[in-house]
């Protein structure tokens, strides 16, 4: 059964007296265990779409079905209960945490709020979550500010999987990380998906990152979905001008010996 179906979703913002369609009539679906890479330039509406999906912003029109529920009409206790099934990991790893929190309290919150594990078992569950994302259990007592950017993103992932979600929305989740750390975080995400059947909506402006983890890719431009298809099809044979521009913009590693005026320096 389709996990997520977004239909004709729209959202307008007013900017300088004009109404701008941040998201215009977007429809897309996501299957269990699938990663959909959502790519577009700055201002294409991809993050707005992710925020509507997370119920951080209201939509103007359209509908979302998630796990068979009318997701946009859920409210109160129902919404809180179902939120456990849809989690999010942001780009700004420090801004996504209470700066005074410890690693343990960050992971304890979702376990308590969503009643995942009774109090007596939480320390053990926190240790298991840390272990699962490749961090030692001794990290539990540290302040969230004491750990490195890559470790903090592992903790954000641990927090996201704590509630046993079926979908995680990743909004530029590796963009701020150094390249050597980025690869290991992507590997962790793929492992977790294979192990738990989690679906990802992976929002990024970087096609090289999406290529590593996405089964399908959707391209947004100026609020509209301009192209969707299997990963290889979109990257190897892009149809829309937006997809072509994104493919051409990925820096290629040039390893040819240098030519030109500095050849003999």
């Amino acid at each position: 059964m389709t996990l997520l179906a977004i239909e004709n979703l729209s959202k307008r913002f007013s900017s300088g007296g004009r109404a701008v369609a941040a998201v215009g009539d977007v429809s897309l679906t996501l299957e269990p265990g699938e990663t959909l890479g959502l790519v577009g330039a700055s201002g294409s509406g991809k993050s707005t779409l992710a925020r509507i999906l997370m119920r951080l912003l209201p939509a103007d029109a359209g509908s979302i079905r998630f796990e068979g529920e009318d997701w946009l009409s859920l409210s109160g206790t129902d919404l809180r209960r179902h939120r456990a099934r849809m989690q999010m990991v942001f780009q700004d790893v420090l801004g996504a945490f209470n700066p005074r929190a410890t690693v343990a309290s960050v992971l304890d919150d979702p376990l308590r709020i969503h009643d995942i594990v009774p109090k007596a078992g939480r320390a053990q569950e926190i240790a298991a979550l840390l272990d699962r994302v490749g961090l030692p259990a001794s990290y539990a007592g540290r302040s969230i500010r004491e750990v490195s950017g890559g470790q903090r993103q592992r903790i954000a992932i641990a927090r996201a999987i704590a509630t046993k979600p079926s979908l995680i929305v990743l909004d530029e989740a590796v963009s701020a990380l150094d390249v050597s750390i980025r690869g290991r975080i992507l590997e962790l995400l793929v492992e977790l998906q294979e192990e738990r059947g989690i679906s990802y909506l992976f929002v990024s402006h970087d096609l090289a990152v999406l290529r590593a983890v996405s089964h399908r890719i959707a391209v947004m431009e100026a609020g509209r979905l301009v192209e969707t298809g299997p990963m290889r099809q979109v990257i190897e044979n892009p149809q829309s001008p937006a997809a072509k521009a994104l493919v051409n913009a990925v820096p290629r590693l040039v390893t040819q010996p240098t030519e030109g005026p500095f050849h003999d320096v």
Binding site: T35, V179, R182, G183, L186, E187, V190, Q193, L207, A208, V209, R211, A212, V213, S214, H215, M231, I235, V247, V250, P251, R252, L253
Partner: peptide, 10 residues
């Protein structure tokens, strides 16, 4: 480095 020639992880 990852570019469009790097093998995917999935």
């Amino acid at each position: 480095h990852r570019d469009l020639a790097t093998p995917p992880l999935i």
